[in-house]
Every structure is written in structure tokens, then in C-alpha cells.
Design a protein around this nucleic acid. Sequence first.
DNA 1: TGCGCATTGTGTACAATGTCCACATTGCCG
DNA 2: CGGCAATGTGGACATTGTACACAATGCGCA
Lengths: 212, 212
Amino acid sequence: MTSRAGARKRDTYRHGDLRNALIQAGLELVRDGGPDAVVLREVTRRVGVVPNAAYRHFADRNALLRAVRQAALAQLAAAMETELAALPSADDPAESARARIRALATSYLRFAQAEPGLFRAAFSTSDMADTENASADGPGGLTAFQLLGAALDDLVESGALPLDRRPGAEYFVWSAVHGLAVLLIDGPLRGLLPVQAHEAGQRLMDSIERGI
Amino acid sequence: MTSRAGARKRDTYRHGDLRNALIQAGLELVRDGGPDAVVLREVTRRVGVVPNAAYRHFADRNALLRAVRQAALAQLAAAMETELAALPSADDPAESARARIRALATSYLRFAQAEPGLFRAAFSTSDMADTENASADGPGGLTAFQLLGAALDDLVESGALPLDRRPGAEYFVWSAVHGLAVLLIDGPLRGLLPVQAHEAGQRLMDSIERGI
DNA sequence: TGCGCATTGTGTACAATGTCCACATTGCCG
DNA sequence: CGGCAATGTGGACATTGTACACAATGCGCA
């Protein structure tokens, strides 16, 4: 029974794609429990492999966490792209750009509330975060940040935003949205009713439009 | 040598104020290393006491962390109060209120960059954060959040802010400032030069003033 | 004054975790 | 087909949070 045993082979010595399996398990853990829940031993346990096996694919528990973070960021980017795609096409380019920014903000906030664990992981420091570097992009190949930048560029192009206000604008928009997201899931606004949270989001986006 | 030994008595059986000593040591650790650096055993080690001694004052490592977080929040509030106090008195009440808001935002951002560890700890979740509840206030008895609220109230009173825009305004302001702070110390804006960070802060505050 | 008891700190112990090292099992490539 | 790099296993160790039983201490009451 060293090689083949009845119908069942020795399922997994060569797992095939352990690296990804580990990341997937990590995502599960992070989903409810945040970054700290990504315990190396538990991850490998779920995949049915010995703890040290992880070290063939990640230098560190931290490296694994980084990979999970990238995956979480990718999911966020994907959610934002989806929201963008569902947008009805407007005639007015300025209005269209504004609508896109609202859509991005909305999906960002929604993601944070629907998947707080993933969201926290996506923006946790741990070591030396690489929020933008590697493959944190969505299916469209753009990161969340880049999606926002594009919308802002279009806003300028449509003439709705003076060019001298453009530089740094994404920092303002992102700051506001990210800040609210954090306050909602970790800060004093935690535990707000969904309706109230939604209202806060709407007010925030109004302020953002005025402030850009 | 059970009781008295030479000149030195058995220095610390009754430590006197262990609870606070632990919090203080926790603050040191959090300062460079963030919340995860608050390791119960290391904290007690620094105070020169056995690990379990901590359990006479805190139910949990988490309870200790909560206390440290409160202390960090208090330091933030104190920094903001100081900045407010240093403000020259303006005649125009509207201008004064605006200046106060800027001062609050400035000190908030400055604190985050000067003490990222404390800042991160102050807003880390861990369990069930109590950013506002307990004694997270500064010397003046107001939390950071309340300081902001007061300034906004004055802005309304001075007629510079329509009353119907008041509700929820602090969420917008705080979101924007907090978001930038986080992006600066953890996010993609991490490692920006101080000058650039300052500039981003200025732009942000301009946008906030417009957006309120 | 002196004694008893609640408070506060100690000692020992245990399970869990991250990571190191040496070894085993593969599959692929020459 | 034989060896080698890649991948997974086993066992070990220091560190951590925490539980339980015990010791020292000092305050309140006799």
C-alpha cells in the first residue's frame, strides 16, 4: 500500500497547487477573524498538510499573509469593477465621471461592511505593506486606486474639474472613503445600523463632490 | 534573609501601582511596534514582575491592550488640545471655528506621523473597541471626537455652516482626516517625504473646508 | 496589640504557535 | 534509468497566553 491503495491513491504528496490552496485557506480564516486569524498551522491544517510544507512556498508567516492581503485587495478591486460595469451609460461625460466616482465609493464602503475581515486584512500593515505593487488588481488589471484615478482624469477632461485641482485629488477622495470605512467597522461608528451607515455614506459622498 | 537583606529591602512585593506601570510599559512597546508588540510577558518583564501578576489587574492580554489603547487615545486628545490652545484668537467667529478645525486636523495628522505606533494602537480593533467610551479624553475632559464636534457647532452658530448640513458633518471631517492618516502610515502613501505629506494634508484640509 | 482575611505577587504547568533542521518522497531531465 | 531539484514529513525548541495552587503582605477589627 505504498503506492496505490484500493481505489484511493495517496491523494496528496504532490499537492499540485499548494501555494494557492494555502492562500485560499488563508482567505477563509481572514474572512472572519481578520489578519490575526491567519495562523500558519491552522492554514496548513485546513489544507491537510504539515505546517512546514508552507515554508516551501512562503518564506514566512508574513509572506503568506502578504499573499492573502493581495488576494483580498484583488477581491476589492473586482467588486469595484463590477459596480462600475453595472453603471448605466450617461450622455453627459461630467455626470458620468461623477457617477463613476460615487459608484466606486459605494462599492468600497459596501465591501468594507460586507467583508470586514477581508477589508482589514487588505489594509493591515504587518511589515511593509504593498497595497499597490504586485498583483492587487482586479480582472480588468487595474487596482482600486487606479480606477479612482481614471475617473478623476475623466472629470478633468469633461471640464467639470479645474486642472489645478486635479493633483492629489485621489488622496482626498480615497482618504474620505477609506476613513469612513474604517470608522464604520472599527471606530466609533461601529455598530451603526445598516440604514444609518448608508445614510452616512451618502452624506459623505455629497461632501466629497463638493470638496473635490 | 527572608525579610530584610542588607540595606535593600525586598523592593517590590507590593509594587504600589502595578496597573499603571504595566500600562506605561505597554505604551513603550506600542510606540515602536504597534499593538502586536504589546506582549504580556514582555510587559511584565519590563516592570520586573512575573507574568501572572498582570492578571490581578487585567482579565486578559486584551484588557491590558484596551487600557493601553485608552492611554494612546488620551495622548492624541491631549495633543489636539495643546494645538487648540496655541491658536491665536480671531475676531471673526466663523474664521475662528474654521481655524480650529484646521488645527485639529493638523495635530491629528501630525500625531499619526510622529507616533504611528500609538496611533495604530489607538484605533486597532482587537476585540470590541471603545474609542469613545471610557477615559479616552485629554486633560480638558473631551475626546478627540468631541473637540471636533464643538468646533463644528461653533461653525453653525457663527452662521458659516447651514444647520441642515451640520448633522453628520463630523463624520465627514473625521473620515477624511483619519483616512489620510492611515494611508500615510500604512497605505500607499507610506514613505512620502514629510514635505509631501504636509502638502497632501493642506490640500486635504482645503477640500474638507469646501466639502463640509 | 495582634490576628484573620482579602489583595497582590509567585511558581509550576500546559497547550498552541512560528520556525529550524534533518530526512523522505516524488517527478523530471539528461 | 539514474540522479537531482522540488516538495512534503517528522521532530524539536523557544516563546506566548493563561490556568491553578501557593506565599507574602498589610488592613480592619477583636
